[in-house]
């Protein structure tokens, strides 16, 4: 029996487990992304007019991104409320990783608008809120979505490591495979994770193209 066949038969035998781990994985990613968007986009809107806060927020988000993911999971375990073993800690870590691309792109999108458009908006008597919601946000949407797309792909990858702190998902197969020196097990985690990332990239890319103006 060739190794290929053994992989395929392994996948076939364990397809129910792989499927449920994939669902767990997606749940982790989706929850983390929703929270990261709910924090990142409003925060990005908030820091547009506040240079000091902007420097701080972007610096903090960048620093978090440089911490190796396994280390970040480790650091979070002893922290009360948000830490510990399990899904909640994993989600906190994933949110921290997803935040920078969303925050940065929200800020860049909102500020990278043709000054003539903003001047006209102001001079025509639009209020600041109207300028934000009717001009800046719609024009920034494609750029913000590009940030969400990057963040989603990062999160799908980093979420495999969340298995190390007992959060489940596709990483469970990978860690078990590494421990048992089993390629089949590693691939059972790695292939669906890669496919998820490709699929998310493709779908969000479609939406992004739809939103692009001019």
């Amino acid at each position: 029996m060739s190794p290929d066949q053994s992989n395929w038969s392994f996948f076939a035998e364990h397809r129910a487990e792989i499927f449920s781990a994939t669902l767990d994985h997606m749940a982790l990613v989706v929850i983390a992304m929703i929270i990261a968007i709910l924090i990142g986009v409003p925060l990005g809107m908030f820091i547009v007019q506040r240079p000091t806060l902007r420097a701080i927020a972007l610096a903090v988000a960048s620093i978090f991104q440089t911490v190796p993911s396994l280390a970040l999971f480790g650091f979070l375990i002893p922290i009360p409320f948000i830490g510990g073993i399990g899904k909640r800690t994993a989600i906190v870590a994933l949110v921290i990783y997803a935040l920078l691309p969303i925050l940065r792109n929200t800020y860049v999108g909102l500020t990278g608008i043709d000054p003539a458009v903003l001047e006209a908006a102001e001079a025509m008597g639009m209020t600041n809120a109207q300028i934000l919601f009717r001009v800046r946000l719609p024009l920034a949407l494609a750029v913000i979505l590009a940030g969400i797309r990057t963040a989603t792909i990062i999160t799908i990858g980093v979420a495999t490591i969340a298995a190390a702190i007992g959060a489940g998902g596709l990483g469970t197969f990978i860690f078990r495979g590494v421990a048992l020196v089993s390629d089949s097990l590693i691939l059972a985690g790695a292939i669906p994770a890669a496919l998820l990332a490709l699929l998310a990239d493709f779908l969000l890319g479609l939406v992004e193209r739809k939103l692009k103006v001019s």
């Binding site: 458009v117 001047e119 006209a120």
Partner: peptide, 8 residues
């Protein structure tokens, strides 16, 4: 204004 500043 110059360049009109229309909303794209």
């Amino acid at each position: 204004i110059q360049e009109a500043g229309l909303f794209p």
